[in-house]
Design a binder for these strands. Structure first.
Lengths: 223, 223
DNA sequence: CAGAGTATCGACACGGTGTCGATACTGTCA
DNA sequence: TGACAGTATCGACACCGTGTCGATACTCTG
């Protein structure tokens, strides 16, 4: 990046600079964990000094919070669109929801990983993520309760809410492991299918393959 | 704790002091996250100065690593005993394994939570935990593969290994959430049942409740 | 072109880390 | 018993990242 040709573009306006900080941070997070990133690095990456950084954000965690907001908004939008297009069949619903989540965080894996890191130290990040997870859990619990009413899931000993919580936490952890290439973790090519399989086993339960009420989709669904 | 009656017990021998540090650390971790704990606090808690601390451990992460070793050893021992006592029925196997895990980390929740925190910053902690998880995954994958051979689980599109990975990561995350009282999380009273339900749905799959081959244990197993 | 707001920086104080050299205590062997 | 070796302890120092403050430069608008 040569300094904007000829005359050096000295001052940036506040919004541009803020955007530059966000961009620099996300870019640096591709290669370094949040904890191994100093404010100085982010500031330099955005073309300002460390102390100028504080003019825009009170801490690096605040930067991440901004980044998280954007990504979460995208995830929710994508989910709502996907679910609307999926129709009522729980098989499609589940796959659509998981895919929306997967696609978004795959595109912004740096932010996703940093968010998990930040949650530990920053209450704000923790609360933001809690709200996100809660909305997914509530939605999932609705689907499960519906399956129980319709009769394809026997109202087991565990509550729909708890089941929904466990499944969503599984997604969170499994996708994190995949994106971080943890050991053990699941390959990107298989992760969605694996999650969908478990979700369907858990919420469609005992009914082996026979569709209980919606014959619009084939009972067997390989691939 | 009054200073050992009358004459102050000045010097401790090295092993005692090391034990005191471990104890102080675990005790402090009950109420504070690892990141909000300074070496000075741990050292004072063990009755020495900060610089003396370095005589015993190179960092607070090293202390945690010691703590983790002990707890992990306990978890493995408990698991092996439980599995040996559980017999071949996968229903009992699954519940026994999950309960062993749950019980151990419940008794040492401070260490469990700190371990998760430390994994982010300390490669050693990350590797140690990876090895633990890998051994659980391998064991689980064995059970799943066996179920597939026996025929009660149709060899689905996803590999036994991936299934095992997802289920174990679910346990890790769900139990963490429970012990940390995250939002959302599952109450301690319900968490084992919830996990067992999902595991059985995933690895026993389509077969509703009929015992597949081992009639020595009752198919129903409440409490 | 003056003044209000915007943007930037250097310098400082603070708190946590890790190292080093000095010193005190303890057991043991001559 | 008393000197020496090893063990244990500490204070002082240098370092690094953070956050704040006051000074200054730039820019727009009247």
């Amino acid at each position: 990046m040569p300094a904007t040709r000829g005359r050096r573009a000295k001052r940036m306006n506040g919004d541009d600079r803020e955007a530059a900080i966000l961009e620099a941070a996300e870019q640096l997070l591709e290669t370094h964990g949040l904890h191994e990133l100093s404010i100085d690095q982010i500031a330099r990456g955005a073309g300002i000094s460390r102390s100028s950084f504080y003019f825009y954000f009170p801490s690096k965690e605040a930067v991440l919070l901004s980044l998280m907001d954007r990504v979460i908004g995208q995830a929710n939008a994508r989910r709502d669109a996907a679910l609307a297009a999926a129709g009522p069949d729980p098989r499609n619903l589940v796959r659509a929801g998981i895919t929306a989540f997967y696609d978004t965080f795959r595109e912004h894996r740096a932010v996703a990983l940093a968010a998990a890191e930040s949650r530990i130290t920053t209450p704000e990040a923790s609360e933001l993520w809690s709200r996100v997870m809660d909305s997914w859990v509530a939605m999932t619990a609705g689907v499960i309760a519906h399956q129980q009413e319709v009769g394809s899931l026997p109202p087991s000993a565990v509550s729909a809410r708890d089941l929904a919580t466990a499944l969503n936490l599984m997604n969170e952890r499994v996708l994190h492991a995949t994106f971080a290439q943890d050991t053990p973790s699941i390959d990107e090519s298989a992760v969605v299918d694996t999650l969908v399989t478990i979700w369907l086993a858990a919420i469609l339960g005992p009914s082996p393959s026979g569709p209980s009420q919606d014959p619009t989709t084939p009972p067997e669904r390989p691939r």
